[in-house]
């Protein structure tokens, strides 16, 4: 049952919560207090009229720990729904990154070429730098950042994963 078990899985969990003070601290405190992992976390209000926020957490653990995480999340009073997207069917998972590359000459051209292949957009440009905006799943963003590393990568900001189930059903 410890994290050293071989049977570690990654799960993407969507949580609908009241947008009230301390709710994020409750969720994060639960993870740190019980020794669960957070690989990625995003949060934003999604329904202003009802003051609801959606948290997307990518976490890892054995199947027993994943079940515990969901049960513990559901136990929090301001939590309305917990949905394990990984087990509930196909889902779309996206992340956005802003990637700053510094340089000139061939490196600069090469970075633009790669950005084109990845469908990254230039959102800021100076004579010696670009800021690229790229959207995709985590693997695609990792690959893009890796490719930019030898070309003058100086800064990366990533949003973390937002995810939603495919098909008509809603959370």
């Amino acid at each position: 049952m410890t994290a050293t078990d071989e049977n570690i899985q990654f799960h993407t969990i969507a949580i609908l919560v009241n947008n009230e003070p301390g709710v994020l601290a409750r969720v994060i405190g639960l993870f740190s207090g019980r020794g669960y992992n957070i690989e990625s976390l995003t949060v934003a209000e999604v329904k202003h009229s009802e003051s609801l926020s959606r948290i997307t957490i990518v976490t890892s653990g054995t199947p027993m720990i994943i079940e515990q995480i969901k049960a513990q999340l559901e136990r929090l009073i301001p939590v309305h729904r917990v949905s394990d997207l990984t087990v509930e069917g196909p889902f779309v998972k996206r992340e956005l990154a802003l990637v700053k590359v510094q340089g000139s000459g061939e490196n600069r051209v090469e970075s633009l070429r790669i950005a084109d292949i990845f469908r990254a957009r230039v959102v800021d440009s100076t004579n010696s730098s670009f800021v690229f905006e790229i959207v995709g799943d985590t693997g695609k963003l990792d690959a893009f950042v890796d490719l930019m590393a030898p070309l003058g990568l100086v800064d990366v900001a990533r949003t973390g994963v937002a995810a939603i189930a495919r098909g008509a059903a809603a959370l």
Binding site: M64, E67, Q68, A71, Q72, E74, R75
Partner: peptide
């Protein structure tokens, strides 16, 4: 009564 108690220590 608490779903988080179930399968926490013992399956």
């Amino acid at each position: 009564i608490d779903p988080s108690s179930i399968n926490k220590n013992v399956l």
